[in-house]
Design a protein around this nucleic acid. Sequence first.
DNA 1: GAATCGTGGCC
DNA 2: TGGCCAAGATT
Length: 290
Amino acid sequence: MPAALPLGSLADWYLRSARDLPWRRPDFDAWGTLVSEIMLQQTQAARVAVEIDRWLERWPTPADLADAPTHEVLRQWGTLGYPRRALRLQDTARAIVERHGGEVPRDVDALLALPGIGDYTARAVAVFHFGDRHPVVDTNVRRVVARAVHGQGEAGPAKRRDLADVEALLPADPADASVVSIALMELGALVCTARAPRCESCPIADACAWRAAGYPPYEGRRAPRQARFAGSDRQARGTVLRALRGVDVPLAEAEIAALWPDAEQLERALASLVADGLVVRDGASVRLPH
DNA sequence: GAATCGTGGCC
DNA sequence: TGGCCAAGATT
């Protein structure tokens, strides 16, 4: 059993060093928290920070987004990446209106039942907005715990076990547990980074098992590395969607064909965009969904 | 469990 | 320069 982490030092460090991010402002409501957490799925905080306010000014409540034209939702999503998230976010807004009277639910299971909301996002909303006690486990938390608690240089692929693993670290008091979760995330983002961690300024360095062991290199299994992007179906999809966002009329098949050199790959990308509901084929042209 | 899904920043 | 990484979720 590893020694307990100095959670008091961690919390003090957080209160001293936390970034001033929009979703940490006291006036951020449950809906704003949910929207920001979905945008933060695999997208860097700095990029979300410049988009979130404009989004929430346009659609300040779930009912507002539920009623929006989907093509406008996709345009506003812009280049945040993984545009299926924008569709799911609108689906979630509609589900909140239908199932929960337009109010973001507090219950983790109710949150998990919403489209596009998984283990991380559901608990992030329940903890960071509602103040309940749950483990909030993202890539930062997994890395910090792997190092400080388990003495491993990397976390390896995400596992179901990670949730219970982190839950065991949390203080009993929900408010204290909430600060520990956000502080672990911030520590992973600012200090205990994937490359070149800043151990000299780490508030829990004295208790870090990885440091105590002399920074042994990671020997365990790793997540498979991302496929090359250049020339991929993903790039083809992105190219098509970027073109459609840039105009307010459908694009003819010939205009679409001019976007990508490999006709067979373009057709495959187009078919997958249609299957995802991101694009609609309308006769001999292609457009964003209404 | 592994593959898929955008875009941009960093060294 | 190109691989790695980023507040993950879904199938």
